[in-house]
Every structure is written in C-alpha cells, then in structure tokens.
Design a protein around this nucleic acid. Structure first.
Length: 431
RNA sequence: GUGGGUGUAGUUCAGUUGGCAGAGCCCCUGAUUGUGGUUCAGGUGGUCGCCGGUUCGAGCCCGGUCACCCACCCCA
C-alpha cells in the first residue's frame, strides 16, 4: 500500500513560500506586542480536559475538540485555545508582579470541518493583561490591536472593531423585561442578528423571549441603538453601573483616537468566560465573513485554581484569517512574497574546484553575507538560471582558472555588469 | 452534525451524441561545451479518485464509496 501524499485533513503544512508569509505575519504580531511592553510565553499543547470543560463552552469542548485518553488513563485534550492555560500559569505563580502583560503564538486544535479560513490545526495569536481591574487595560489591548493593524498598513476603512459589554447587555435585557432564565438564549439570538433575514430573526427572538412580545420589542430597540447618546437608551439604563462603564470606555476610546472602534450591542462573543467588555475585529468588506479577532474581559478564570481572584483582559487573533485578510487587500509586501534567498550565488564550473568554492562560500558567510553554493553540478548556464529563479542578485563563478589566478568574476544579474577581484575585494563589494 | 459543488499529466483546466487521452503553465534537453530572465525547436509525464453495473465499446450513462472544496453550525 502506498502512503498518501496529503497530510491529515486540516493539518498545517507549509511549503517555504507560504511559510515565509506566515512568518512575516507572526513576526509582525510579535513586534507590535514587544513595542507595547508585552513578553512572550508558551504552554503545553496537551492539557487536561477538565481545564477547558469548566469555562470554554460545551460546543468547543464537546464537539470540536481533539480529546483522548492517554496511556496514564488521563482524559486529555489538544488545546483548542490558549487562555485557560494562561490563567493557570498566572494562578500558579505567587511571586508574579501584577499586572502581567503576556503574548503567545500557540498552535491550537479544533476538530471541525475545514473551510476557507478555518482548519483543524491553527496558530492563534494571544495577548493578555492579567491583574488589572482598570478599563485602561481594555484600552491598552485595543491600542495594541490597532497598532497591529497599522503595522500591516491596513487602512481603518477596511476593518471595524465592534465592542460591547456582557454585563451591560445582561443588565439591559433585564430592564427590557427578559427573564433571567432566558437571558442566555436571547444572547445567542442577538449574536445571530447579522446572519438572518430580519423577519425570521424577529420571530426567532420572540421565541427566545418566551413569547413576550413587549420584551422582544425592547430588545430590538436595544440592538438597534447606534449611539450611546440615544435618549431611549439613557432613559432605560440611567441607573446602571454597567452602562456608566460603557459610556466611560467609549470616552476612553474616542480620547485615545481609536475611531475604528464602534459600540455594537450585538457583539456578544461565544466563549463562556467573558464577563465585561467584549470586542471583535471584522473585515468591513464581504470577502472574509468571519471575525479576525475576538476578546474581552474575564474575571473568574484564574479563580478556578484557588481563591485568588485575578481579572484579565485579552484577545485571540487567528493568524490564518488575518493572512487571508491581508491577501484580500494586497497587504503582503512583495519583498516578503518574492524574497531573495541569498545575496550571492556561487556557480561551480567543474567538480574539481568544489572545495575551493566551498572555501569561498564559507569566508563570505563569515562576513554575514548570504551565500548559496551550487550543488546541482549542472552546466553554468543552468546554474545562472537557478540563481535568477531564486532572485539572487549576484553570481560568482568558480573554475580552475579562477582558482589558479586567485581572482573571481562576479556578475550582477540586475544590470549585467561583471566585476573581477580577489575574495577580499568581492567581500568588500558585497558588504 | 446539516446542505451544495468538484474529482482527467507536477499544476490550472478543456474533453462535442458513448468511438485513438488533450491544451496552457511547470519541469527536462538542445540552439549556446565559462554566463541567467526573452525567443525558438524538441521531450518526459495519466490505473481519467476508487469499486461495481449498462454497452460491441465508458473520462462521458447508472449505483455505491472515498477524498477535497464551499457554505451552515461554531469560532480565530
């Protein structure tokens, strides 16, 4: 039986050309994080199932996870996300100086059916602040998010950061007359608003409200609110501390110049552990109908590991969805897509001088010059083709005569000129 | 888990009413035995996803199956 040439469905396999682009994306993410004083960390790929069962949500753990029993009879899971591991790491370190600002770029796993922008093994960039209760922490992570988009040269017209507050929406639903027991169902109906036809959605909402049409109408009014200055909203929420927090955060965002952030009561986020401000980053065009990034505040996650209560705020960002977004808008630089593999190619005209060519290659590399030495043994014309294909700008030819003379010819493939000189002179020329 | 689509050369895809398996690109060779991109000439490469059925004859029709893609669900 012959083995398949394909990897398992949805598993990550990158040829160099694609890997170079992914690397550009992840390195840019890291740079933006470091620029804001964040430190990188990592955690285990395999975790106890219980770590996720508590707070991540039934759908994620029950249906979309890689879980199995290991040889020690432990129920384990390939991490579907990073945040619970992060919470544990912070909970275990009594000596940590709070708040911590950490980021990571973990491979995560979800057993879902693959489609555009969604696979089973994926990189999910994470950035979090733990140990700060202040809204400044929310502001800081969104500032980093905005900085990331800037570093990719994405104009603010092509994306939108929608934000809301779980606490605010719960409070508002109660004031709209939605029973406490129905709030969860109404949450998920709100989340689907953009994906359904208005009539069908209204009907769906009415059901979720237990047939209470008065409450349903108020919920519709609530999610239709476009500005926090809306008079109906102010009347409804005047005495709500969650509303005051939302107003306050809006002022912070506006004052900090984050104009791509828009208050959207419809943003709820799927993960169960979010408790306060939540946000997501969407492509405003139609090509990528999925959020690139989602995040928010979680108050109770670290508490799972003891009586310590540490509040956190952060976001996860799909490297693959971000890459698709960047490709859609032509934001992958040509220098990344068509990077030269070396500064100079050493063409070898005869096997007799391979060692001399190697010596030259090594001495150039010692100076930090990127050198690709021919290993094909093909004739010179082919070796030049090879150099050209790799977009290498210079070719040094090594043959018996050159070795004897101690001087080599170096051709500039961009303008066709030829320079002849000793290894030292060539080094100088290339530096 | 649900629905739709596609499987033919390394790759992107044509393939007429069921009648010899095709093209572009890539790759290789040569024109040019020490100098690339362009051009020209030639060439390698296929169990038509797999199994079965109908037929004198199946890439094409029928049944099954597998794989992949897209969308839903969910989410990054």
């Amino acid at each position: 039986m012959t083995l398949s040439t394909k990897p398992l469905s949805g598993m990550r396999q990158r040829l160099p050309g694609e890997f170079r682009i992914e690397k550009y994306v992840t390195e840019t993410l890291s740079l933006s994080s470091v620029l804001a004083g964040f430190e990188e960390y990592d955690g285990p790929v395999i975790e106890p199932l219980a770590l996720f069962a508590a707070k991540s949500g039934d759908e994620l753990v029950g249906r979309q996870s890689y879980c199995f029993t290991d040889r020690g009879k432990r129920d384990v899971i390939l991490r579907p996300e990073m945040t619970p591991s992060l919470a544990r790491m912070v909970a275990a370190q009594g000596e940590l100086k709070l708040p911590v600002r950490w980021f990571s770029n973990p491979l995560c796993y979800r057993y879902e059916r693959p489609q555009r922008g969604r696979v089973r093994e994926f990189l999910q960039f994470n950035l979090d602040i733990l140990g700060s209760e202040s809204l400044a922490a929310e502001l800081e992570v969104i500032l980093v998010l905005q900085g990331i988009m800037k570093s990719f040269n994405a104009p603010s017209s092509i994306y939108r950061i929608g934000w809301s507050s779980r606490r605010f929406v719960s409070d508002a639903l109660a004031r709209c007359g939605v029973e406490q027991s129905l709030a969860g169902a109404v949450f998920s109906v709100i989340d689907k608003r953009d994906k359904m036809k208005p009539d069908a959605w209204t009907e769906f909402l009415l059901q979720a409200c237990g047939g209470d049409s008065g409450a349903a109408e108020k919920v519709i009014a609530l999610v239709s609110v476009e500005a926090l200055s809306d008079k109906w909203l102010i009347d409804l929420m005047s005495e709500s501390s969650a509303f005051q927090e939302v107003v306050k955060f809006n002022e912070l965002l506006q004052g900090a110049g984050i104009h791509s952030a828009v208050f959207s009561p419809g943003v709820v986020r799927g993960l169960d552990y979010y408790t306060g401000i939540v946000f997501e980053l969407m492509d405003t065009g139609g090509e990528n109908n999925r959020s690139l990034c989602g995040g928010g505040r979680y108050d109770n996650l670290v508490g799972l590991f003891g009586n310590k209560r540490i509040s956190g705020v952060g976001f996860g960002l799909g490297v693959l969805t971000l890459t698709l977004f960047l490709k859609t808008y032509g934001l992958i630089p040509d220098s990344v897509k068509e990077a030269a593999l070396a500064d100079v190619y050493i063409a070898v005209s005869s096997p007799d001088v391979t060692s001399s060519a190697g010596l030259l290659a090594a001495s150039l590399r010692d100076k930090g010059i990127r050198v690709m030495m021919d290993v094909s043994g093909k004739k010179l014309g082919k070796q030049f083709s090879e150099a050209s294909r790799y977009r290498i700008p210079f070719v040094v030819t090594v043959g018996p005569d050159d070795v004897a003379a101690g001087k080599y010819k170096m051709k500039n493939l961009l303008d066709g000129t030829v320079f002849t000189g000793s290894p030292e002179e060539i080094t100088t020329k290339l530096q």
